[in-house]
Structures are given as structure tokens and as C-alpha cells.
Write a protein that binds this DNA or RNA. Sequence first.
DNA 1: AGAACGATCGACT
DNA 2: GTCGATCGTTCTA
Length: 205
Amino acid sequence: MARLSYDFYDGDTIEIARNLLGKIVVRVTGGGTLLAGRLTETEAYIGRCDKACHAYGYRRTARTAPLFLPPGHAYIYLIYGMYHCLNFVTEPEGEPAAVLIRGMEAIAGADFMWRARYGDKPVTPARQRNFLNGPGKICRALCLGKAENGLDLTGDALFVCDSPADIGLPELPPRRETVRAAPRIGIDYAEEARDFPWRFTLEPA
DNA sequence: AGAACGATCGACT
DNA sequence: GTCGATCGTTCTA
């Protein structure tokens, strides 16, 4: 199946965060279930210059080690003791940086993801609105946790492709959309980096 | 060894 | 809008 290669991730993190919007994240679970979502929200984190990045100033610890892997790997960490966040490692190897995956629309395996998020709870408008609009929710839906930290994004368990056709699904109807840049969420401690407009969302034009 | 702190979420006023 | 849950990671000593 066609997927984005190493080269896509080997570059400027902000550019990649924008370029990821509209792309299809594909996850194949341990049980072989195909899950996919269209990316609608991302954030850039760059260790070299960004106090909000876990690897700010090239800080290298057990947790940040995956950020020093070559571009095109997954960085997944536990936050607030109960949620995981998925990132794609970017920049040339040795530059710790990544794109946080914050939002997507279900493309494949929606029923499986719903169950992973809500169990048997019934469908409600509120749950539909809040289905996949946060980093912790996405990891829950895609069954991503500590075990998947460091995964190679050119492998078969987790990757990104340009369109649903790349995984044998029908193309989506074209939509008029624009990219909005805004300050990132939940990093008020990060001093000047708090205001960097490195959060990108895909919105109706 | 102990303390402080989250790149969040869902329940609730 | 506010607030508590919950625990691994990191830092200090």
C-alpha cells in the first residue's frame, strides 16, 4: 500500500505539520483491524528553539529518546497519568522535533474506534462532535500506547498516505478548505513559545 | 526518596 | 466556564 516515505518527514516541522492536514493516518491493530482518519489538526514542536517541546535545548532523557530517532518514527508519551499522545518525528536525524496529532475525521474502522472510545455507550450529538478532536482521544481510538512508542512510520502498523485510494477505499468528494494557524493548546508554561502560531487546523473555506 | 508537574478529558455548575 | 482524576517522568537532595 502506498504511503508517505522517510523523505516526507525529513524537513521543516512547521511545513510538515501543515502538509499533514488532509492526509490519511492508517493504523492496523494487533488484531489486524484497519483504522484510518483524515487529519484536521496538528501542532509543531521543535527542540532546538521551542520551550514547549519535551526535548527543548536537545534535552535527552528516557522519555525524549524517540525524538532523536530518524524522521518518520512515532513518538508516543503518557500525559496526565492516563492519556497518550501521538507524534510523528520530523527534521534531519539528531534534531529532536515532532508533529503532535490532535484531530481527525474517521475514514475506516469508525465502529471499532467508537467502541474503543465509548464502549457500548449510545451515539449522541455530543459524542459525535467530540469523537476524534483531541490527542488523547485519537490514541484511544487507534489503540496506540507505550507499546507503539518508536514505531517506524514506513512499517505496516502505523503510517500516513495521501488519499483513501492508497488503502483501497473510495476517494472523498473534494471540499473547499483552508488552513488556519493559531497558538498551541495547553502550553501556558512555555514562556515566549506559548504564542508561537504552530497549531494548524483544516477548516471550511 | 520524595515532590512537583503535566502537549488531557469528561463531568459538572 | 471550573475541577478532579491519575501516574510516569523529571528534578532535587
